[in-house]
Design a protein around this nucleic acid. Structure first.
Lengths: 182, 182
DNA sequence: CTGAAGTTTCAGAAATTATTGAAAGTTTAG
DNA sequence: CTAAACTTTCAATAATTTCTGAAACTTCAG
């Protein structure tokens, strides 16, 4: 590993836990993404100085996040690993996976609690608050979906618009009917 | 605590670590948000069955996230705690705080690495990839800023638009000049 | 079928993170 | 100033998470 790669790998390791996986999994991801060629499990273990067993578990986890995929190299017995797609794809996968783990279970619980009939009078207020949280989470997830569907280029266009989005929004009543008309 | 509140508090505890804080901090946040009245530290410790010391640290952390604030109740010696704002405000704070911890350090490192002059030839490719990651993170954070500035009502409007956003985007060249003209 | 090359599993060890509770600190009423 | 009421700190301990490495497993060439 060149010094630059080493820095990046170390950093992704440290950040790993904040991003939802552990140190070694973070390092492994960085290594695989930055590598020019497919990497074998043993190469990864050697580069990062971790046990072969740990490497195997880490690869399994990265696959469960759909961030890497196996690739057979003709003539070679062992399996090699490469990123599951472009940076944009990988970022989307992380988002999606985190949504599944961080938001979906909460939305589900909130829905259930809202259906429970209140056992106490103070529950009315509580349910209202839970409802508010639920709606907010729903909005945010629906929105991030929308952005994902746009793809990176359109996202960039939208970005350049900046606060212009607010302005467009004010105009939408004028625009959309016109569009419907055509 | 009513059964509904208990369920919610427990759930926020379990999710806590995924959201960036630990179990008890998650429980404390839920309790404070769902409570109708300001809560004293001792009440929180009792309700959650945790030590007074742990409570104190948890409150400190919630304050560092700017999710709760202290409130003095006239005639009372002790301090009480209430949410730092509406659900929308709290959600924004969590987003912002997480961005600071999860994205900003990485962007900063990536910028530095991109400035380093490559020691090896294979670094050229690596730097290109790092650059790509950097730009993506930049886009996403700028966008989430934008959404935060819009506020909840406009976000809702935008939401209803759904995939219409894509369509509007196609029209923007027609719209924005018109706007500039007026 | 055999064994070499490779991978996965998992019990225990190591490392990290969270929690307690007692001691030290702070604030205020009197 | 003193003492009661309350809060914070932090060393020790408990709980949790991660990592290792040896054993079990799989695959395939010969």
């Amino acid at each position: 590993m060149t010094p630059i790669v080493t820095s990046a790998v170390m950093h992704f390791g440290e950040m790993g836990s904040r991003w939802g996986f552990n140190r070694t999994v973070g390092q492994m991801l960085a290594l695989i993404v930055l590598s020019e060629k497919p990497l074998a499990a043993q190469e990864i273990a050697d580069a990062l100085n971790i046990s072969r067993g740990n490497t195997s578990m880490g690869l399994k986890e990265l696959q469960s996040w759909r961030l890497i995929k196996q690739q057979s190299v003709p003539g070679e017995r062992k399996e090699f690993f490469v990123p599951a797609g472009s940076i944009w794809v990988l970022a989307n996968r992380v988002f999606e996976e985190r949504r599944k783990r961080e938001i979906d279970p909460t939305m589900s619980l909130l829905r259930d609690l809202m259906l429970d009939n209140p056992a106490h009078e103070e529950d009315a207020n509580v349910q209202e608050k839970l409802n508010e949280i639920h709606d907010l989470l729903e909005s945010v997830t629906a929105w991030s979906q929308e952005l994902q569907n746009l793809g990176p280029e359109k996202l960039a266009t939208l970005m350049k618009l900046g606060s212009g989005v607010g302005r467009i929004l004010e105009l939408k009543d004028r625009i959309l009917p016109a569009k419907a008309q055509s």
